[in-house]
Design a protein around this nucleic acid. Structure first.
Length: 568
RNA sequence: CGGGGUAUAGCGCAGCCUGGUAGCGCAACUGCUUUGGGAGCAGUGGGUCGGGAGUUCGAAUCUCUCUACCCCGACCA
């Protein structure tokens, strides 16, 4: 490609509304332009990267035996009513009507469509197992789209769906796709982790997320220092403490804590550690309110709470008036002593003694509280988020926390959808049987942003070679004046192009500084500078975008040099 | 959804308080000079001042209203 034949529109200034670095760089390079909230144009430059990722994804899916197809983006409401998701999916679902007033939605995902397809097409166990996939645009009406294509409303997704007769067969395909995903992120050149995940709204049993590690990640990942264990913090189990509960040494006392409400305020006021406090959260329960009790410095894990049978889904904290009814005081002074509702305590709370809790009376707290003597709880559960230093759930090593960007998620769905949509096949005995399903997603457009988050420096993007918009940039110095430079640059350009290298030559009549700055901003992995200065010695200059060091190379060796770099 | 903020040339912003028909930097275009790290000089083009209504002789500026976009919020217990 010649720069003058391409659409290259870089910016020096960072747009005001771009928060994260990937968004800023995607705008500055001109890969992306915004059309509306969460809606973006992919320019020819940006599309090249997107297509490179798509190609790798497609190749690995094909290799894993998956079959590509395309499904409509617009889906009839009827299918969503069958699974109950027309209402359950909530406002994320963009609903539209056609001219006849019939209801449709813009597909945020395609379980309904594929299950409908499967129930029409798959009649016999002999056709199983089978996996279909597509790479296409989805729309989710996100509460708050942000960070450019990281959380856009319209985005490009690869989604795959597998169908099976048995759970064992599902597990086999699941493992195969797990491996395909590892291959994909490996090939793209990203530092990633597959982590155990909560299967959430979609339902089913096994589930893994694939995270690209980056500080700006929206998710926290817990991983072990002593094994391969890795899980989303939402999912990471916190083991019961092994230490015994210390003996009570203090007498129960009621203290006036004035207007101190939060854990930190009360701890500061009493000059003790938040670890000596417990916090009591009142939530909606299935059968009346439920109190969830945590150590002061611990964080409630809402997913874990939501999964408790006693807690009403979706997880909801009680409103102020309801709190007053149960605890007889305002939030801020709730405590476990004589609290008239189901009390579920976190594992860590069971070994606390001489602790501080709200007195169920405004502006009062109790100190020197001890279990059994002063208060009791109904049951114990794992309620809190794992944190650095906790023992790993598999017993090996300790937990560390990293930030990750979720770029893939695979689920063993089971028969949730095939039951509700009645997707059956005849088994070997000639009997009707519901198929069991798996589903597997990759946020293709999000991978672009994640790759930038992980690979950039102060000059711009540093693309992993496999997905770079161009592999090699030829930067001729003063080509308009020096016939010799022009000749050498064009010869090299043609030679690399003939070898199938995705090369761009900057043939604009611009000053060298601009040329260098653009090539660096764009993050092209290999730069070749050609100027009279080095040509005098029969040489050109090579610079790797990553290393940023100029190396003189004989003109006759440069093609071979590039080839060896590309093979590596 | 609740709270806050913004909307003026492609981008980043000033002007608004105190009303008089719009300006700066970057980008773009032309010319000359410059030519190995985002150049200099001279010039040019480009704006229904987010939409609508109102007040006024006169509105980017004041009032009302609508819309779009951005930020924060679901851990006070």
């Amino acid at each position: 490609m010649r720069t003058t034949q391409f659409h290259l529109q870089t910016r020096k200034e960072t747009p005001a509304d771009a928060e994260v670095i990937s968004h800023q760089l995607m705008i500055r390079t001109g890969m992306l332009s915004r059309l509306g909230s969460g809606l973006y144009n992919w320019t020819p430059l940006g599309l090249k990267v997107l297509r490179n990722i798509e190609k790798i994804v497609r190749e690995e899916m094909d290799k894993a035996g998956c079959l590509e197809m395309i499904m409509p983006t617009i889906q009839p409401a009827g299918l969503w009513e069958e699974t109950g998701r027309w209402d359950k999916y909530g406002d994320l679902l963009l609903k539209i009507k056609d001219r006849a007033g019939r209801d449709f939605c813009f597909g945020p995902t395609h379980e309904e469509v594929i299950t409908d397809f499967a129930r029409k097409e798959i009649k016999s166990y002999k056709q199983l197992p089978i996996t279909f996939y597509q790479i296409q645009t989805k729309f989710r009406d996100e509460i708050r789209p942000r960070f450019g294509v990281m959380r856009a409303r319209e985005f490009l997704m690869k989604d795959a769906y597998s169908f099976h007769l048995s759970t064992d067969c599902l597990k086999e395909t699941y493992a195969k796709i797990h491996q395909a995903y590892c291959n994909i992120f490996e090939r793209i050149g990203l530092t990633y982790r597959p982590v155990e995940a909560d299967s959430g709204e979609i339902g089913g049993t096994g589930s893994h997320e694939f995270h690209v590690l980056a500080e700006s990640g929206e998710d926290a990942i817990a991983y072990s220092t002593g094994s391969d264990y890795a899980a989303n913090v939402e999912k990471c189990e916190v083991l019961a403490p092994t230490k015994p509960r210390p003996e009570a040494t203090q007498e129960l006392e009621i203290v006036d804590t004035h207007h101190k409400k939060s854990i930190t305020e009360v701890a500061d006021f009493l000059s003790i550690s938040p670890k000596k406090l417990i916090k009591t959260l009142l939530v909606e329960g299935v059968d009346g309110p439920v109190a969830l009790v945590l150590r002061g410095d611990h964080e409630l894990n809402e997913i874990k709470a939501n999964n408790l049978p006693e807690v009403a889904a979706p997880f909801t904290l009680l409103e102020d008036d309801a709190i007053k009814k149960v605890a007889l005081c305002d939030a801020g002074s709730i405590g476990v002593k004589d609290l008239n509702c189901t009390i579920i305590v976190d594992r860590a709370v069971t070994i606390m003694s001489d602790f501080v809790t709200g007195a169920n009376e405004n502006d009062k707290h109790l100190t020197g509280v001890n279990w059994e003597r002063d208060a009791s709880y109904g049951q114990v559960a794992d309620l809190r988020n794992a944190k650095a230093g906790d023992p790993s759930p598999d017993g090996k090593g300790k937990i560390k926390i990293a930030r990750g960007i979720e770029v893939g998620h695979i689920f063993q769905l089971g028969d949730t959808y095939t039951q509700s949509m009645n997707a059956v096949v005849l088994n070997e005995q000639g009997k009707s049987q519901h198929m069991t399903m798996g589903c597997y997603g990759i946020g293709v457009s999000r991978v672009v942003a994640a790759a930038i988050e992980q690979n950039h420096d102060e000059k711009g993007i540093v693309w992993p070679q496999q997905i770079a918009p161009f592999t090699v940039a030829i930067l001729p110095m003063n080509m308009k004046k020096s016939e010799r430079v022009k000749q050498a640059a064009n010869d090299l350009y043609n030679e690399l192009k003939a070898l199938g290298v995705d090369v761009i030559i900057d043939d604009r009549k611009i000053r060298p500084g601009v040329m260098f700055a653009d090539a660096e901003l764009l993050g092209i992995p290999h730069h070749i500078t050609i100027g009279d200065r080095s040509l005098d010695e029969g040489e050109v200059e090579y610079k790797s975008r990553k290393e940023m060091e100029n190396v003189r190379i004989k003109q006759s060796d440069i093609v071979g040099h590039i080839q060896s770099l590309l093979e590596a």
